[in-house]
Structure formats: C-alpha cells, structure tokens
Nucleic acid binder design. Sequence first.
RNA 1: GUGGUCAUAGCUCAGUUGGUUAGAGCGCCAGUUUGUGGUACUGGAGGUCGUCGGUUCGAUCCCGAUUGUCCACCCCA
Length: 449
Amino acid sequence: MSKPSIPQGTRDFSPELMSKRKFILNTIESVYQSFGFMQLETPAMENLNTLTGKYGNEGDQLLFKILNSGDYIKDLDLNAFDSKSLTPKIAEKGLRYDLTVPLARFVAMHRHEISFPFKRYQIQPVWRADRPQKGRYREFWQCDADVLGTDSLLCEADFIKIYQTVFAKLGIQDYEIRINHRKLLEAVCEKADAKQHFKTITIIIDKADKIGVDGVARELNGIGLNETQVQTVLSLLNKKSLSIETIAEFEQKLSGTESIAKAVEDFNKLIAFCGADLNKIVLDGSLARGLDYYTGCIFEVVPTNVKMGSISGGGRYDNLTEVFGLKEKVSGIGISFGIDRLFDVMEELQLFDGQTSSFADVLFCPMDEAAINYCLPLANQCREKGYKTEIYPSASKLKKQLDYANTKNIKWAIIVGDSEIEKGEVSIKNLVDGNQQTIDIENFVNSIY
RNA sequence: GUGGUCAUAGCUCAGUUGGUUAGAGCGCCAGUUUGUGGUACUGGAGGUCGUCGGUUCGAUCCCGAUUGUCCACCCCA
C-alpha cells in the first residue's frame, strides 16, 4: 500500500481551515442575500457538449472529462481515431469549469419557470485541469452572483456596493476595483484603425500589469501595428479614479468613434447610481478580461498589498443563453469571488488572527460512567439554549478532558462526579478566567454566557 | 502545453566531502499532579531519507527515470 495522497492541485480542508473558509463563505453569502439574490446549485458534472466550445480552445483543454461507464470501447474501432476524436466517444460528461455556463444552461432549460430579472448566487467548486501554482488550484470554489434579464446600470452599481461591503466585512482594506468597458476597448481599436485585431489587442493590453507599457508596445508591434497605432492604444492604458471628469476625458480622446457613446453613457449612469461612493474604483483602460462573452462593463478586483492575481472578476454579457438556442435575448451581468485566493490573501495579511475559532461552547466532563447519564439531559438543555455542547465520551482523567476542551477552545467545562450527583449540582468552570463554582442544576444554564 | 525548483519524523527544517546507531524544535502519548487545563520539568512512541533503476565493496547523499511540490510562462479565480 503506497502512502495515501490526493490528486494534484486539490486540498483537504481541516476543521481549522474550514472555520476560516466558512467565515469568508458566510460573509459573501449573507451580502448576496442582502441584495436579494437567491441560491442555485447545479451538478458537479455537466454533459460535455454543454461545456465544450464555451471557453475557447484553451478552456476546452482544461476540462476534466469523465469516462463513460461500462464497456465503452466495445463497439469502437480504435484505429479509426486519434486521442482527440476519440474523447467524445468515450467521455460524454465533464466536471464544470465555471458556474456561468451551468447558469446559462439552467436558464435555457427553465426559461418558462423563471421570472426576470433573475438574481441568483451560486457557491460551488469548479475544476480545471490546469497546472497548479500560487493561487491556482485544480479544484477551487467560486462564489458567483448574476442578474439576468435586465440591462440596467443599477446592477453594476449594486455589484460595486457588494464588493465594498464584502471586503469591509472581511477586513481587507487595500484593494482596487478595476473597471472598464468593452465598448471603450472597441473604441480604442477603432481609433487606432485596428478593429480587425480587437481580440488580440485586448489580450495583449490585459497583460500591461505584468509586462509593462514597453512590453505591450513590443507585442503590438509584433502583430503588425505601426508606431502611430501603437501610440494611440498606449495613450489609453493609464489608470485613473472613476469620475465624471475621467469619462469626459475619454469621450474627448475617442470622439468620432462608433462605440464610445455607449461606454460614456453607461459610465455616467453608473457614476450617478454610485453617488459619492466611488472609493477604490479605478477606471483601468488596460483591463480586458479574456472571456469574450463580455460586452459591457467589466470588473476585476486585485489586492494592492499582496502579490496575488485577481480575487474577483465579472462583467456584463449580452446574450449568454444564445448558445443554448434561446431565441429571446437574455442579457445579464455577473461577478465571481475566488474564495481560495481570498483565503490566501487573508492568511497572508493575518486577518484571521483576531478570530479564535471555538468548535464548541460547553464540554461536560463526567468523572464516572454514572455521570454520563446525569449529563445527558443537562447537555440537551444547553443545546436548546443555543450552546454548542458536547459530553466527553468516557470518564477519563479530568486533565485529559480539560486538555481536550483547551484544544477545541471551549469556554465552559461542566464537571460532574459523585459529589455533584448526590447534591443535584454541577461544577461550572470558566476556562478563560479559571473561575469555578458549584451550582444547583435547576438553573445552571443561566450561569453560562 | 513550456521552463525551473525542491522532495529527510505528523509539521517546520538540520545533517552526512558516499561508511556501523540519521538529529532539533513544534506536535503527539505518558508521568510529576489517582477530580482541575493552558506554564514548567521528566520520559516515550514515531523515519527502509518520495518511488524505481544505475554507478559503487558500500548510496539518504552521485547519475537517470518516474511521481509529487512549489514557482514562472500560457491562460485564469
């Protein structure tokens, strides 16, 4: 028997880790709920034809595929296939790659039962056959929220408020909400007279953070843009805080282009909805986001004092359900938190240090077998009062039982032995300050706080 | 998919210029204290040095492969 192990890029979450993860998860979930989002869950596996072709070539290669059951090669002439054409014959299901495509599939399937606008959130793991590295796992959790069936800019404003609320609650202070507009990017390409290179250009400028302005210029040259064109693109890469003035500046620079009007209109509406609260919002001309289903505003959130990729991303898309054959146009907007990266960021910033996780509030410490029976109804009383309560399962030495309470960060130890049982009492010890008192069982629960 | 890094106790890591018995700290178990914890002291368990193969009289150490790790690129949360 070889040493036990888990697959590459996956992790176990110990109780200690889970209590921290739960804190993040619960925070995000409660904020989503406070904005009226409803929960959706979809299966871990989808039909492979639901998934393939939605993420581009790169994405398709990163899909985990599930082998068919039974004798899946019985009727196949293996020599007639190469590994690529064989795959669809022997694997018809795959693990989900994100939560957006399953959402689109769900909406397409249940369009008649859904009333729009449809606001759903979804917190589930996704899988990518990527090579793991810092902040990148093969199994990780996404926390998505999407609004479908409205193109109001109020949604964008809501999501910005959600970002601000979540990060405030988590204690993350140094971050930047980067925002851009697909139409602004289009206008830039139009201005530079390079519309036909739109997709390539977005991919290149998205790397600006990493390779710098010079690097971007070099790569733009590489795809055949001349110096004027490159300069036109570069002139729009700078980051500025989002404001009426910034927008006006862009409008002026890009006047005469087809796409700029829509971007300006959207930004101005968004600013109006956000009111004065434009804190931490940066208009970043270089933000592009690879996924090409985005059509309007796009977001990305990055921590500014930790070296880490984006911890959230999202944007507006015009017609997500189109590929599933839905005739009526369902536009929408969504964001996604990557809680694994959030976790890494918070761990690095030591934001969990303040919290001591306690796995129970009360531990009953029976000194002999008879005491266990005596404790049972008392423990249930504690639970009814809302305390996490357990009874040590054997009459071990007190030291051992108190040690156990310490490691689980339990505040109250309730010691029960012969003398307590005789008098109908319990001894309650506060493990934080060390005080101990013996009181009547009638109202002992009231002594716990 | 490409390039690099590393792999020794449960964890973090020493160490052996190739040689008899591979160490520390933390953690774990027990005792000092047979009903009073978090501190202290004492003792104990736990490793075929990732796996397979090669070189050698002899390999944890050198070489090769393999698996895993971490990091960077591509792409992305």
